[in-house]
Every structure is written in C-alpha cells, then in structure tokens.
C-alpha cells in the first residue's frame, strides 16, 4: 500500500520522513511564509485570521446596520445567534451581571465559529483554531478576565476561598485547596485551549488523510488501474466526516464560550 502511494504521488523523495505528500497536506506543521513586512513573516494562517475577523465584523455590520421593523431573513438569523449567546450563555450562566461580559463572549463565539468553519469552507479548508497560538491567546484572554474579575469583585477572599475552602472538613482543606488551586489557575486555561485545538486538529487531520488519499488514488487512475477504486471508499468516508465536522465546529465554539462564561461566573459568585 505504501509503495502504491509513493508511486502515485508527484514528488518522491525516499530520503525524507514524509514521503510524497501532496503539497496541501502538511500545512498543519509547516508554515510557508507568503511575504514579509519589515521582519514580520506573514503566513496563510495569519491572513486567514484577519479574514475571520473581517467576516465577523462584516456579518454583524450588515445584519444590524439599519434596524427594521420586519428584519430580513439574514437579519433574523443573526438576531437568533446573538440572542442565543446573550440569553443562554451570558445572562443564562452568569446571571444579571452577565450582560457586562456579553460583548466579549459574543466576539469570542463568532470568531471561533468562523475560524472553525474555515475547516469545511471550500478553497480555505484550514481551521485557524488548529494552530495552538489562537486558542491559547483566547484562553489567556478568558483567564485574565476571570482572575481579574475574581479579585476585583471579592478581593483577597477570592484566593482564600480557593486555597482554604470553608465548605469541607478542616482536615481536608489543605488537600482540597491545593487541588482547587491547581485546577483553577493551571488546568483551566490549559484545557480550555487544548480542547478547542485538539478537536480541530483531529478533525483537520482526519479530513486531510481521508480526502487526501481519496484524491491521490482517484487522480492516478491511469497509473494504477482498477485499484484506484479504493480511493472512492476513502472519499465517501471523508465526506461523511466532513458533515460531522460542521457539527463539531459549531459545538466547539459553543463549548468554548460556555466554559468562558462558567469560569467568569465562578469568579463573580464564588460561593455557588
């Protein structure tokens, strides 16, 4: 099988580890520089990040540019999305104070949603959230917000409530406090970033492998004859995963926003 793929691919260099990959496969680990501005190298992921930001701003701008009594279909859809983030996530999780954090949650939700959906957008096919830098920066943003809010709302009793929890027996307090401290200040931002990153990497790798091998087999039907039919199987499985990934993209954007809201909520009302 490997021999077949090597033979079917365009550039075969048996000296390297990754032999005969199609050009588009390795984008996850290599970042070819497109152009440089004064020492800053710009690659495709950065351009896509800008595009995602522009798309988010454009969506909101065109949906709410002029309010109408009877909104257009597009306006209704955006109102539903924004209303969902406001009612279900911001106010629903955090409570009445939640409306203060609604702009942040909405921005994060829409940016991650658009970034995730780049995975299944034709001709882009690259989720920007599968580059660790982007989920990590967003997680650090949430981390800074919930730690800052915790100290601003509760003073030092926020830290005290975590490392010396009043609700457990006194003998267990050092142990529970240590676990709580590590889980709040170290594990939370780490898992928040890794969850989004790993889901999107897994999806992207799966799609790349399945559709890529399907493409390799089917496009070399002249060289390998009827054996190219294997590619049809890969392609069909890849298309099934493709639609599954749309659901994953939406769900992961929702979960990131939901967890950000939950973390902020635990800082606003630490007793609950």
């Amino acid at each position: 099988m490997e021999q077949l793929i090597w033979a079917a691919s365009a550039e075969c260099d048996p000296a390297t580890d990754i032999i005969c990959k199609p050009e588009f496969v390795n984008e996850l680990f290599e970042t070819p520089v497109i152009f440089s501005i004064g020492g800053f190298d710009v690659n495709r992921a950065m351009l896509l990040m800008l595009l995602a930001a522009v798309v988010v701003v454009g969506l909101l701008f065109f949906a709410f540019r002029k309010p109408r009594v009877v909104p257009t279909r597009f306006g209704t859809a955006m109102e539903g999305l924004v209303g969902f983030v406001r009612d279900e996530i911001a106010v629903g999780i955090i409570g009445h104070d939640g409306i203060k954090y609604f702009p942040y949650l909405l921005s994060v939700f829409l940016f991650i949603l658009v970034g995730n959906l780049f995975e299944v957008t034709p001709f882009i096919n690259f989720p920007i959230t599968s580059r660790m830098a982007i989920p990590a920066s967003l997680a650090v943003l949430t981390y800074v917000i919930f730690v800052f809010v915790g100290f601003a709302k509760n003073g030092m009793s926020y830290l005290g409530g975590i490392i010396w929890p009043k609700s457990v027996p006194i003998g267990l307090r050092p142990l529970v406090g240590l676990i709580e401290f590590v889980s709040t200040f170290l594990i939370r931002p780490l898992t928040l970033a890794v969850r989004l990153f790993a889901n999107l990497v897994a999806g992207h790798v799966m799609l790349t492998l399945l559709l890529g091998s399907g493409w390799i087999f089917l496009s070399h039907v002249a060289d390998i004859g009827p054996r190219a039919a294997i590619g049809l199987g890969w392609f069909l499985i890849g298309m099934a995963i493709f639609f599954f990934e749309i659901a994953v993209a939406v769900l992961q954007a929702y979960i990131f926003t939901l967890l950000s809201a939950v973390y902020i909520q635990t800082s606003v009302h630490p007793e609950h």
Binding site: T191, V194, N199, V201, Y254, I255, L258, V262
Partner: peptide
Amino acid sequence: TTMFLGIAFTEALALIGFVLFF
C-alpha cells in the same frame, strides 16, 4: 447545558492524551 459542561470537562482528559501523542 449542564450535559455539555460535563462532557467538556470529561473530554479534556482524552484530549490531553491526544496532544501528548503529538
């Protein structure tokens, strides 16, 4: 909502394993 929260927390362990694989 609570189910998604629970799934997200549980899933974290598997995802850390996935990243460690890389």
